[in-house]
Amino acid sequence: MLEVEVRKQLGEFALDVSFRSEGRVTGLFGASGAGKTSLVNIIAGLLKPDHGLIVVDGQVLDDTQAGRHTPAHRRRIGYVFQDARLFPHLDVKQNLDYGRCMNRLSFDPAAQDRVVALLDIGHLLDRRTGQLSGGERQRVALGRALLARPRLLLFDEPLGALDADRKAEILPYLVRLRDETGVPMIYVSHDADELRRLATDVVVLERGRVARAGSPDLLVERPPASPEL
């Protein structure tokens, strides 16, 4: 269960968003500049809201009235960035293991094997990150986030930097991730097709506010705001 009710002024831009979601995959939909990335950064704890409340599974992570702000590293919220952000000085295996080390979790070979098999990255383990293709980088980033055992996974347009072929290569892995792991997800995209395939709930953002919320079908009925916004 996720409860978000935040306000944040970012220069000229005002973000004022509130929604609740119990879905497995909550899609955040909107044109670029709608405030999607700022919103996930606030949920991740990388950005502090000016006012508001963020509750994940009954645990209050942000409550500005009570002066509460849990820093990002104590939230156990995984984040898959559009640009993967694999650590360039570590190889693939060390990248995958990073979150486990930082959270001082015991090594679980079965969990690692499961994630490696799920994402089909077994043959990449000894590679340096500079030798990976865009799609491979994104799969490793997924595995790295998963192996830190998050209670919520954030995706910020993970397919945004990939061409159509690579997107088609990664999407099935995301579907598997949704169906085979129990981790709830928030998935940011400006691609309605992507969200119709993945999301169980959709929140539509326009200029920093929630315009609509409901089932992914609402993306079919009303076409999205034009992307030149």
Binding site: H73, I77, G78, Y79, M102, N103
Partner: peptide, 10 residues
Amino acid sequence: QAAATLGAPP
């Protein structure tokens, strides 16, 4: 930032 979301304190 990526390291922080993976649980690394500053």
